[in-house]
């Protein structure tokens, strides 16, 4: 079998399509065993979201327009979270070209979270126990994190690995769109598109070349793998 070409996974967020429905957040939490922390803790600002919708209001009341911007880990090519971790719990994977969090190496200095300009990282402040029937929902492919550990979006790396293994077993290359993170799968407006950026013909590559593209805080030089699309003058999204 031919040597596999290392993929460069990327995501496109089309803000002109986003309705701010938050389906991505729910799907992400279920896929990745992200615990529910309870109302009080959420109100205190300790919700564990791997993806969140930033909502801004434009204009003065009553002529206000909401704008939505789903923000997840940007999978920086030059990630500020990686060099500051003293125990290599925040690392770059060779095969997927994304940042991974190694939960059982993390000692919880929270330095990576401070140094992340996108605030994509969340911390397990307590052990969050799931009530009994809910435990059956846990995804066996994803580690359940205990207290004192940092976590974040992994582009659903477990799905990427599964997809690659399946393709390898069938002796073929991965097809474009075959692997989808939970958020992309759940998005009803198809605002999120996932794929291999190293393949210039893939849908995500074509979209990422769009004239509407921008990256979050591009000036910091973090080389994000997430591209946002936003036309001018179009409300919403």
């Amino acid at each position: 079998m031919a040597e596999e070409r290392p993929a460069k996974w990327g995501l496109v967020v089309d803000l002109d399509r986003c309705t701010g429905c938050n389906a991505c957040i729910v799907a992400c939490a279920l896929e990745n065993n992200v615990p529910f922390v309870g109302e009080d803790e959420v109100a205190y600002g300790r919700a564990l979201y791997w993806i969140r919708t930033q909502r801004y209001w434009e204009g003065e009341y009553p002529e206000v327009t909401p704008t939505f911007q789903p923000v997840m880990c940007q999978q920086c090519g030059n990630a500020p979270c990686e060099p500051v971790c003293p125990v290599y719990a925040s690392v770059h994977s060779e095969e997927e070209q994304i940042n991974l969090a190694v939960y059982n190496r993390c000692v919880g200095t929270r330095y990576c979270a401070n140094n992340c300009p996108y605030f994509a990282r969340v911390f397990n402040w307590f052990d969050y126990e799931l009530p009994e029937p809910m435990r059956s929902y846990l995804n066996p492919d994803v580690t359940v994190r205990r207290r004192g550990v940092m976590e974040k979006c992994t582009f659903c790396v477990q799905r990427i690995v599964r997809g690659r293994q399946k393709a390898r077993a069938e002796g073929r290359e991965l097809r474009d769109g075959e692997v989808q993170p939970a958020c992309v799968q759940a998005c009803p407006a198809e605002a999120l598109v996932f794929g291999d950026l190293s393949d210039p013909e893939s849908r995500v590559s074509q979209l990422a070349r769009s004239q509407r593209r921008y990256h979050l805080l591009e000036a910091l030089g973090t080389l994000p793998r997430v591209t946002y699309l936003k036309g001018v003058g179009n409300h919403g999204g």
Partner: peptide, 15 residues
């Protein structure tokens, strides 16, 4: 025994 949550820190103030 309980967790760092007993401290007042929260996102985005991790320290």
């Amino acid at each position: 025994l309980t967790g760092m949550g007993l401290a007042g820190i929260r996102r985005p103030v991790f320290w």
